[in-house]
Design a binder for these strands. Structure first.
Length: 278
DNA sequence: CGATCTACCTGATGGC
DNA sequence: TGCCATCAGGTAGATC
């Protein structure tokens, strides 16, 4: 569920709560939560360490930890479709269904990982996080030059939206914000990516930064099901600014007489205005 | 190499 | 009320 702005919102909250704090204990429940290595390794690795900082790469959340016997480690979380990270001020507060991991800090407070669909995952690794080497430039921080995007589009004949969703091309864009970026850039997502013009690449780069920055400012998008909430369980506000995503049959906000349509691109819902997106 | 399916899961929703 | 089909913010892996 969460895309870059939602992960960044959670990271900003976490940074405030856990940097400088010590992890007492970790419990992992559910065979799917940790699957890159033995689940017990998480507790063994984290317990007793102090959080030194947080990072985000695309939709991955990273928590850096203090060294022990000379080695430093990083804890990685990806929420996939239905994962949540929730801050609990007292570990005795009852667990909600589908709570798969608990990380306790300084005796009482607890970070909980809740994930009904169990697609999300946690793991520990080295600070260079080699598992994420395949990711393209981060859509918010590192996508600055349109030529960078053009080069990454080379040889890609899939639809434009499919390529924007490819995390190896650019990291952090998901289904909601791909629709929004394409609307701002006035481009249709079902056109072949390799036909994108230089001017269109410039508009995509500008639109990506604009859409992502505004969504972070609004603390992410919470749709009807409220599956995304921040670290404190509070919904975001970016959905109120969606121009096309999930806006079927609504008038285009450009007031150009267009009506928002839905189609399927790469097996996923895509919303667009047939009037202003070409 | 690139493109396209499919699997991985639970839960909400809407039609009959 | 069921019961069934469809859909959901994502990604990795198989296959062509």
């Amino acid at each position: 569920m969460p895309e870059l702005p939602e992960v960044e919102t959670i990271r900003l909250d976490l940074d405030r709560e856990i940097v400088g704090r010590r992890i007492d204990s970790v419990s992992i429940d559910g065979a799917r939560t940790v699957r890159r290595h033995a689940p017990e390794k998480v507790g063994r690795t984290l317990e007793g360490r102090t959080v030194t900082g947080t990072r985000r790469i695309g939709k991955y959340l990273l928590i850096d930890l203090s060294s022990r016997a000379g080695d430093v480690v990083t804890f990685v979380a990806h929420l996939r479709m239905s994962g949540q990270l929730l801050w609990t001020t007292d570990f005795s507060i009852p667990l909600v269904k589908h709570t798969h991991a608990r990380i306790r800090f300084d005796g009482i407070e607890e970070l909980r990982f809740v994930d009904p669909r169990t697609f999300g995952e946690l793991w520990v690794t080295t600070p260079d996080v080699p598992e994420l080497d395949h990711l393209g430039p981060d859509a918010l921080k590192d996508l600055t030059d349109w030529k960078q995007l053009r080069d990454r589009f080379a040889n890609k004949r899939s639809p434009l939206k499919t390529v924007l969703l490819n995390q190896e091309v650019v990291a952090g864009i998901g289904n909601i914000y791909a629709d929004e970026i394409l609307w701002v850039a006035r481009l249709r997502g079902d056109k072949a990516a390799n036909k994108t013009s230089a001017n269109a690449f410039k508009r995509i780069v500008a639109a990506t930064h604009e859409v992502m920055a505004a969504a972070v400012d609004a603390r992410g998008s919470s749709l009807r099901d409220q599956q995304y909430v921040d670290l404190y369980g509070v919904a975001g506000g970016a959905q109120r600014s969606h121009n096309v995503h999930d806006q079927m049959d609504e008038p285009c906000p450009r007031n150009d007489g267009g009506t928002i349509k839905r189609l399927v691109i790469g097996g996923r819902s895509a919303y667009y205005c047939p009037k202003c997106q070409r």
